[in-house]
Amino acid sequence: MPRPIGRELLRVQVNGEERELLVRPYATLLEVLREELRLSGTKHGCELGECGACTVLVDGLPQLSCLLLPAQVEGAAITTIEGLADGAALHAVQRAFVERGGLQCGYCTPGMVLAAKALLDANPTPTRQEIKEALAGNLCRCTGYASILDAVEEAARLLS
């Protein structure tokens, strides 16, 4: 029987708020977000880094929360889907997904939206191929990706 392992302090900024949390050192960021912070907008599809559903932004970069240990995000700024809108006003990427039908069941949507946001932050005028490559790790079973591509292009227009 392995010895019980205590919780450790994690200091992290989540959606602009400083958080100090006691977490198990082997709990993934996905578990911390969903179960400790109750931010259930971050989804889990495979929990093995194979589907992209749990994508969050860590210091602005899309990363897979199912693979990240607390120590890896110590001191980082994390954006989850709950942190994207400005109050009641949707972010342009969210608006574009709504208007262009870039979602159906919506389960891959948080990860998709965040990956798209990170792309547009880095490259405000991506080509369709660049969008595909940036979102390539995010699987969707509903849309056939077409309307998501349209939505990201629309978001680029809205942001320009």
């Binding site: 907008g41 989850t80 889907i81 949707l90 969210q94 709504v98 039908g101 159906q104 948080p110």
Partner: peptide
């Protein structure tokens, strides 16, 4: 737009 789209893009659903 779908009626539940906003709830899905904000993670609130």
């Amino acid at each position: 737009p779908r009626v539940e789209a906003a709830a899905k893009v904000t993670g609130s659903i």
